[in-house]
Structures are given as structure tokens and as C-alpha cells.
Simulated assay, not measured.
Amino acid sequence: MKCILADDEFPSREELKYFIKEFSNLEIVKEFDNGIDVLKYIESYEIDVAFLDISMPGLDGISLAKIVHKMNSEIKIIFITAYKEYAVDAFEIQAFDYFLKPYSEERILSSLQRIEESLKENLKSEVTVDKITVLDNEKMYVINTEEIYYIEANGKQIKVVTKNGEFLSKNKISEITTKLNPDGFYKCHRSYIVNLDKVKEVMPWFNGTFMLRLKDINKEVPVSRGNIKEFRRLLSM
């Protein structure tokens, strides 16, 4: 369960970081002091929770949250601010919670517990399948998921690649992810899901990333920097 902190007040950020590290299982993957850098990060990396200060340079927390919600509505937004008057705006964009400074320890611990419970419920509700429906020249086919080598999102087009050809899917890549067996498939990049059983070679790439060479087909799939740690764990690297 990955989270980010965005607050231009360093002492406030440090205090919240202490509570998260000591009293939750959330992993803080990045800290920011402005909204623009948050947006750039979320465009490339997957997170579950975002703690956002409302008053930040570059892009305020409310405007940032509206953009983030459109990009990925599953990210839980928690606002942190010294001002009560933004509460209505926060909940209009379906914020998970709203912390006032100075922080109340009891309030934060209660919210952290609710966040973890909510994320765990989401995982429980995900149902894996062993078949998926794909399209080829307007015809529909049902294929076994074990036949899939990788899935690629290119804009609104979702491509499902097998040894025998490439197909299209009407589902979003985030929707497909929840249906596939997490032990066999990994979302190694914002735009790619790879079948780990089809990986033949892991090649070091730029900026500490990897490129995956697949069996049987002349294709390579990238692993983004934000997914390197989990990928190493999955493959016991």
C-alpha cells in the first residue's frame, strides 16, 4: 500500500510522516513540497493514497486532487490544511478524509486505520478469472488468461498480446488488472501488465529500470522505476 505526502511545510510533513510510519502499514514512496511535482509523479507511478496540503506553490491541493481523481479515481485523497473553509470543496471531489493542523493524534490514527481497512476490502473484492473476452476485426473471442504474454494500454486502446496474435479489449487496463491472478500477472508499468511466466530475460535499462524480454515472441516490456522494488521481490532478485 503506497502513499505520497505533499506539504510545503517541512515540520508538518515530518509530523505526519511519523504517524504513518509508526502506526500504519502504508509505505511512503515519495515526499513533495509543491503540487506540480506530485502531478508529474502520479503520471508515471502507481500509488494508493495521497496526503495533500491544500495551500501549496505551483498547484493547490484542491485543483491537484481534481486532476488526480480524473486520472485514477481509486487513489484515496486525504487533505491536510490549517483552514476549515475548504472542507466542502474537499468532499465534493470525494476526498477520503480531511485533517486540520495542528494534528490530532487520535484523529489521524483513526483515519489511518480506516484507510487500511478500505484498501484491504478492495483487495478482497477483486475476483480473478481464468478467461478473458477479446476482439479481433469486430469478432469476439474467449481466450485463457495463461495464453496472454502481456497487455498494453495505448491511449484508449487496450491491446492483449498472445503467441498467436494481438487482440483488443473494451476494458480499461485497471479493470483488467483486478481480474487477473496477482501471482501470475504483474502491472510492471502504468501502461503494461506482464505474464511473469512468459518472461525469458530481465535486462537492466535506463535510470535503474528494467526491460523484459519475453519467450516465443519478439517483444520487450518495460518495468517502471516505481515498480522495481516490488518486481524484484516477486522474482526473488
Rank of each mutant, 00 (worst) to 15 (best):
E138S: 09
K139W: 09
K139R: 13
K139V: 09
Y141F: 12
V142Y: 00
V142I: 08
V142E: 12
I143D: 01
I143S: 09
I143K: 08
N144T: 07
N144V: 05
N144C: 06
T145N: 00
T145D: 00
T145W: 01
T145P: 02
T145V: 11
E146H: 15
E146L: 15
E146W: 08
E146Q: 12
E147C: 08
I148P: 00
I148L: 05
Y149A: 00
Y150Q: 05
I151G: 01
I151N: 03
E152Q: 12
E152L: 15
A153F: 04
A153L: 04
A153C: 08
A153I: 09
N154Q: 14
N154C: 15
G155H: 12
G155S: 12
G155Q: 04
G155T: 11
K156G: 05
Q157R: 13
Q157Y: 10
Q157H: 10
K159C: 04
K159H: 11
K159I: 10
V160H: 10
V161D: 00
V161P: 05
V161C: 03
V161H: 02
V161N: 04
T162I: 13
T162R: 04
K163C: 03
G165A: 13
F167I: 03
L168A: 01
K170Y: 02
N171F: 11
N171I: 02
N171R: 12
K172Y: 14
K172H: 13
I173L: 14
I173W: 04
S174M: 14
E175G: 11
E175T: 09
I176T: 07
T177W: 11
T178A: 03
K179V: 10
L180V: 09
N181R: 03
P182K: 04
D183H: 12
D183S: 12
G184Q: 15
G184V: 15
G184Y: 13
K187A: 03
C188E: 05
C188I: 08
C188L: 07
H189A: 01
H189Q: 00
R190P: 02
R190E: 04
S191W: 04
Y192C: 12
Y192N: 11
V194L: 02
L196H: 14
